[in-house]
Design a protein around this nucleic acid. Structure first.
Length: 960
RNA sequence: GCUCGGAUGGUGGAAUUGGUAGACACGUUGGACUUAAAAUCCAAUGACCAUUGCGGUCGUGCGGGUUCAAGUCCCGCUCCGAGUACCA
């Protein structure tokens, strides 16, 4: 059999390879430059929107181009996705693998505030640097589809989507977003009495007649209560240091995620997105997603669905009703007091004169606290009595109403019915203020604390619920509440509507102008509404957002253009919105734009949308779990409802790459001296560790003292105490960051070892999903592997590749590699792929195998990992076409099978007899063989053979 | 507190469905080549005992269990990481 029969693709090769241009050594710098240039000029990775091939859309989370450039941690995910992209091309897919930049953001703006340099300039500089670094690593991106969220031709469509949201409301009956025009038609016909939609809780009820008598302004105000993006007076997270509001996911531990500044509460008129309308669909949609469990769990917790009941309590001597949400309506007879959030709107209405002062003092005290203080004080119990009483819905008994900090205005109704025997916080509050505690759990001791377990306990002291367990009581009490009209079963979500206004310059302008209070959207044909030039990037002296500094920033309704401030008092000239959109706006739909990135007329042509549909594989960090990954699902669902996209989830498969951590180096200074001790001799001294640049330390943790003295002047006069003539540093794994001097630059690795070595090494470090520290020391093993493989092609100026028929041993090695690589890429186990290659090459080297029929398929297998290396040798083998589109080698089991004739058979670990068997024998045949050896099956328990365990040619067990 | 991960040699990690634990690589030690160095190649490398050859015992955070067989499955803990939190 000739090699050509095993590998049909070998037939088209050109046999005469050119020995003249042969490279003798593995000159990675020259090779990588050469192929990067070829790929770029030939546009090798350009994806076609019209193709007969099946499509495969593989997406990376696009980066924010920061000023620091890339470190070795950033490309990890890109390398993984690039391997899959190249693998899928070998399998015959039309692969879309785009890249772009999430280029609006705070750092460029803060740099502008400090230096006056326009953020677009900073951004362009940073993008160019990123591009250079990305290009060096040989990614197979289709750069013709690049997007930048800060470019007008991109944010034009972000603004367009904003207008779509503005022009939609959520119809609960249809369970989807519907254009507002249909809502207006219904209002005209029947008012809003029967309209079921997600809307503001203060929406008035009106008839068709009333609607038609409302003036335009009133109608618009009502419509704002329904729109999916709406303007409202809300309590926001205000960050004074950044001068802007923040969304919940932009706050970590009570301080701003960026900068770590204090955050307080403030009431402001803000744009919001009605994401809460989609809470249930966002939750249900998770079940269909092939995302990691932890990520889905994070989103579930963030959405925070809880089931229970709404209960309305009458307030003694007041017309208002007090609504609470509870997950434990079954404990209604254990209620001994009520607690409202200090901000609750009823507080001012129901507080009696006696308690007036105490209540207002308490509210003032709470209001001045920052989120962080509030969190820090979480364990302190505080509260005050309002003097008012609620009435128990069943017994009619008065229940004192308190206010307390532990009740949050933003969750549920901002009010709770307190059941001290069934909730630990209520118990603590009751104990602290000596409020009564009633036990309603039969046979449970609650003297030490609340009983929160829902299971296996019967109620007592609970009137008609006595003797019932949790589940039965729940059903009973809800129907009782409903029949009395004092409550109903209810579901509550933790997810809040997303605040969409930012008091920033460097973001998408919101395409809205104002006539008085009424927001008016710009027409589609007037987009993009471009960012104006400003002189200062800070808020104005009147406290308006930075756009207030613009010379030109108003809308002329007659000429339909942006006009200058001087004309603002003219008729039909109206102020434009001065807030901009948040960082997540541009990233919430970019994956759709890649499908048709250069389209000037549409956001995406329907044809392109029909072909690409959705992302097949999304790679990115799990830090976006409750930000980008939630908002983008929300927008996709809106766009789906409105018919602009074809799938409700844009990325069914998502993989989170881990973070590559830095390996910081420390020197140890003896307290109060200029003496630095080597790591091994610090034990008996008091020392303080000081970070030093990791590039000054070699692979054995030895510090380059001369380099250190040049690095920072402080060390020039220092004294160093060595061990064995060397200064050994300490190590600690932490996040890679410039300030920790532990950043490793991929450019340096590319200079020393090449991009292919870097790519393989990053994969070899460990499972792609796992966090792991960077350690440059291990890279030599991977580099040696490439050099070793190179030597199968060249040795001592000799081209070794021959056309001889490969030996069975070498074919076996090849096919073992083919099998493992196919399997392991499929399950994203790139680190074991690398090991497989190393084993294969070691074995082939031992066999001195340089057969073309072995090496060619091997190159194809390796090319997703080391593309430059493989392209170069592929060309030297005589091919003129890129290796990229060669069919991936297919595993042939007959190449690796071996039949062993004689097996020692043991049972329960003890050898019993020897038997002649072949591995492909059926169970029946094996039974016969055992009989032939004059052993009855009874001797081994008399059962039926199901499984023969063979390890290294030895039967160790027969399982029955 | 709750939710989700994780724990394997000196180090990173492998073991896909329960089937020779430690693949592969780094590091270390010894050797070959060399005037020397670099590069390359070879050998050893979980621990302990025996090393005169075979070899033997223990070993995947801890304690139990299931199984002919457990890193893998079940029960109970310890520690580490991530997310989230007065969420009613």
């Amino acid at each position: 059999m000739s090699a050509g029969n095993f590998f049909p693709f070998l037939n088209k090769r050109i046999f005469e390879h050119s020995k003249k241009q042969a490279l003798m050594d593995y000159d990675f710098l020259q090779i990588e430059k050469k192929w990067q240039d070829i790929w770029s000029t030939k546009k090798t990775f350009k994806a076609d929107n019209l193709s007969d091939k099946p499509k495969y859309y593989i997406l990376d989370m696009f980066p924010y181009p920061s000023g620091a450039g890339l470190h070795v941690g950033h490309p990890l995910g890109y390398i993984g996705s690039d391997i899959i992209a190249r693998f899928k091309r070998h399998l015959g897919f039309n692969v879309l693998h785009p890249q772009g930049y999430d280029s609006f953001g705070l750092p460029a703006e803060q740099y502008a505030i400090q230096t006056g340099q326009h953020p677009s300039k900073t951004t362009t500089t940073n993008i160019n640097r990123y591009r250079q670094q990305l290009d060096r690593m040989g990614f197979s991106f289709d750069w013709d589809r690049e997007v930048r969220t800060s470019e007008p031709n991109y944010y034009k469509w972000t603004q367009w989507i904003f207008l779509k949201l503005f022009d939609s409301y959520y119809d609960i009956e249809a369970d989807k977003a519907v254009p507002v025009s249909e809502l207006i038609l219904r209002f005209k016909k029947e008012g809003n009495i029967n309209v079921q939609a997600y809307c503001d809780k203060d929406t008035p009820v009106f008839s068709a007649l009333e609607w038609n008598t409302f003036n335009h302004e009133k109608q618009q105000k009502i419509l704002l209560f329904y729109r999916l993006t709406y303007l409202s007076e809300t309590q926001v997270n205000w960050c004074p240091a950044l001068g802007t509001v923040l969304a919940n996911d932009e706050i970590v531990n009570g301080v701003s995620e960026r900068g770590g500044y204090a955050v307080t509460k403030k009431r402001m008129r803000q744009w919001s997105m009605r994401i809460s309308a989609y809470a249930n669909r966002l939750l249900l949609g998770l079940d269909e997603l092939d995302w990691s469990d932890s990520l889905k769990e994070m989103q579930r917790n963030w959405i925070g669905k809880s089931t229970g009941a709404s209960i309305y309590f009458e307030v003694e001597n007041h017309p208002e009703k007090l609504e609470v949400f509870t997950t434990r309506p079954d404990t209604i007879f254990g209620v001994t007091y009520m607690t409202l959030a200090p901000e609750h709107e009823l507080v001012s209405k129901i507080t009696n004169t006696e308690q007036q002062k105490a209540v207002s003092d308490y509210i003032a005290l709470v209001a001045q606290k920052s989120d962080r203080d509030r969190q820090a004080d979480a364990k302190l119990i505080s509260g005050v009595f309002t003097g008012a009483h609620a009435l128990h819905p069943f017994t009619g008994e008065p229940i004192p109403i308190w206010i307390g900090e532990y009740v949050l205005a933003s969750y549920g109704t901002g009010a709770v019915m307190a059941v001290p025997c069934g909730d630990q916080r209520d118990f603590d509050f009751a104990t602290h203020f000596r409020l009564p505690i009633v036990n309603i759990f039969d046979g449970v001791d609650i003297s030490e604390g609340a009983f929160t377990d829902k299971g296996r306990v019967k109620l007592m002291n609970s009137d008609f619920l006595n003797g019932l367990d949790y589940k039965a009581a729940l059903d009973r009490v809800i129907s009782a509440l409903e029949s009395k009209n004092s409550g109903k079963g209810a579901v509550n979500f933790r997810l809040r509507d997303a605040i969409f206004s930012r008091q920033r310059y460097w973001g998408e302008p919101i395409p809205i102008y104002f006539k008085g209070d009424i927001p008016i959207p710009l027409k589609e044909e007037h987009l993009p509404l471009e960012l104006p030039r400003v002189e200062k990037y800070l808020p104005t002296e009147e406290g308006m957002p930075p756009l207030g500094n613009a010379k030109i920033w108003a809308w002329d309704e007659i000429n339909e253009e942006v006009v200058s401030n001087d004309r603002i008092d003219q008729q039909f000239v109206f102020p434009l919105e001065l807030n901009t959109m948040p960082g997540w706006a541009g990233s919430s739909w970019y994956f759709n734009r890649y499908m048709d990135a250069q389209n000037q007329k549409e956001w995406v042509a329907p044809k392109a949308m029909k072909y690409w549909r959705e992302v097949d594989f999304y790679m990115g960090g799990s830090e976006h779990a409750t930000g980008h990954l939630l908002y983008s699902r929300f927008w996709q669902k809106v766009l789906f409802d409105l018919g602009y996209v074809r799938t409700e989830e844009y990325a069914k498969k998502l993989v989170n790459q881990g973070m590559i951590l830095g390996n910081s180096a420390f020197v140890y200074r003896k307290k109060g001296t200029q003496t630095y001790l080597s790591k091994g001799i610090i034990t008996e001294h008091e020392v303080e560790p000081i970070r030093v640049d990791v590039s000054l330390v070699n692979t054995h943790d030895e510090l380059n003292l001369e380099g250190l003295k040049n690095w920072q002047k402080d060390f020039q006069n220092a004294e160093f105490v060595l061990e064995n003539g060397k200064y050994i540093v300490g190590r600690e794994v932490e996040k890679m960051s410039k300030s920790k001097y532990n950043v490793v630059n991929p450019d340096e690795i590319c200079d020393t070892y090449g991009a292919d070595t870097l790519r393989i090494y990053e994969m070899f470090l460990g499972p792609i999903q796992q966090d792991k520290p960077w350690n440059t020391a291990g890279i030599s093993g991977v580099h040696n592997f490439l050099k070793k493989l190179w030597r199968l092609f060249y040795q001592k100026d000799q081209w070794l590749v021959n056309d001889e028929v490969p030996s069975p041993e070498s074919l076996k090695i090849l096919h073992q590699v083919i099998k493992k690589i196919n399997d392991d890429i499929e399950r994203l186990s790139f680190n074991t792929c690398v090991s497989t290659f190393m084993i294969g090459v070691n074995e082939l080297t031992a066999l001195k195998c340089s057969n073309r029929a072995i090496l060619e398929p091997l190159l194809i297998l390796l090319s997703p990992f080391a593309p430059h290396f493989c392209e170069e040798l592929w060309q030297q083998l005589g091919y003129t076409e890129s290796i990229e589109f060669e069919p991936f080698p297919v595993f042939d089991p007959s190449m690796v099978q071996e039949t062993i004739k004689e097996y020692p058979v043991s049972f329960n670990g003890k050898m019993r007899f020897t038997i002649k068997l072949s591995l492909d024998m059926s169970v029946e045949e094996i039974k016969e063989a055992i009989m032939r050896e004059q052993r009855t099956l009874d001797q081994i328990d008399g059962a039926t053979t199901k499984k023969i365990i063979v390890i290294h040619g030895k039967i160790i067990n027969i399982v029955f």
